[in-house]
């Protein structure tokens, strides 16, 4: 089956994240949070396994925090000296599923979207200016180059007897100045190269969106969640 378009998954993640801040009822949070966590985790398990485990492990910290600040209401259960009241479970569920909505939707977006397709869609469908879209593309390209630059500069710092830990403003300067100088020169030439290839005369082709089956599945999934909030 074809992947849904990056723009649809982006809009999905955006709306679910907004809903996470708007929903007030705990039962809605549990249902919609579970839907997103399960779908996001199953799609993203292969790539984001560590993050998912970390998120689930975070429940322990969340529980301890809630025990300290929200241990109010009816006693739900007690284990010797440990008395857990309704407020603890409510707080844990509230935070876990609220964040779970954002986390799950983001996992779904990251698992299904291709960064380059997403950036192209920003121009094609959201009509972002070409300069902004080019900059985002270039940022994608720049990231591995900056990593390489940083490695080279750290090697030089090491052989020139500078400490590896960046502590003082002088350390920061000796790291940032070469990084900026190299990046600036590279950016100037990348700009020249882009202009030589007609960036300034680019006329973006705005396209009307044609929905695929998988796009419609994502939209239906979102609609179900909105209907749950409205009608249940």
């Amino acid at each position: 089956m074809r992947k849904p378009s990056s723009m649809i998954t982006f809009i999905y993640a955006l709306i679910v994240s907004l809903l996470a801040f708007m929903i007030k009822r705990i039962d809605h949070l549990i249902i919609i949070g579970s839907m997103n966590l399960v779908s996001g985790a199953s799609l993203g398990f292969r790539r984001f396994r560590g993050l998912i485990i970390l998120y689930i492990a975070g429940v322990v910290g969340l529980f301890i925090n809630s025990l300290l600040v929200s241990n109010r209401g009816e006693v739900v259960f007690s284990l010797g000296w440990l008395v857990v009241r309704e407020g603890v479970l409510r707080s844990v569920a509230d935070i876990f599923f609220r964040l779970g909505m954002i986390f799950g939707a983001t996992l779904l977006f990251l698992s299904l979207a291709e960064p380059r397709e997403f950036i192209k869609d920003l121009e094609r469908y959201l009509r972002l200016p070409k300069g902004v879209v080019f900059s985002i593309f270039y940022a994608l390209r720049l990231y591995p180059l900056l990593t390489k630059d940083l490695d080279e500069i750290m090697l030089v710092r090491s052989e020139r007897m500078r400490r590896r830990m960046i502590i003082t403003p002088g350390d920061v300067s000796s790291l940032v100045v070469p990084l900026l100088n190299i990046s600036l020169e590279r950016a100037v030439w990348a700009g020249i190269a882009a202009e030589m290839r007609g960036l300034s005369i680019r006329r973006p082709v705005y396209r009307g969106k044609r929905f695929s089956t998988t796009d419609l599945l994502i939209i239906t999934f979102l609609m179900i969640q909105i209907l749950i909030i409205i009608f249940i």
């Binding site: 593309f137 270039y138 390209r141 180059l145 030439w189 190269a193």
Partner: peptide
Amino acid sequence: AVLQDPDKQISMPTPWD
């Protein structure tokens, strides 16, 4: 145009782009 250093010229993330 082909510049001296490909890393300064290439601005897109894949050869296709």
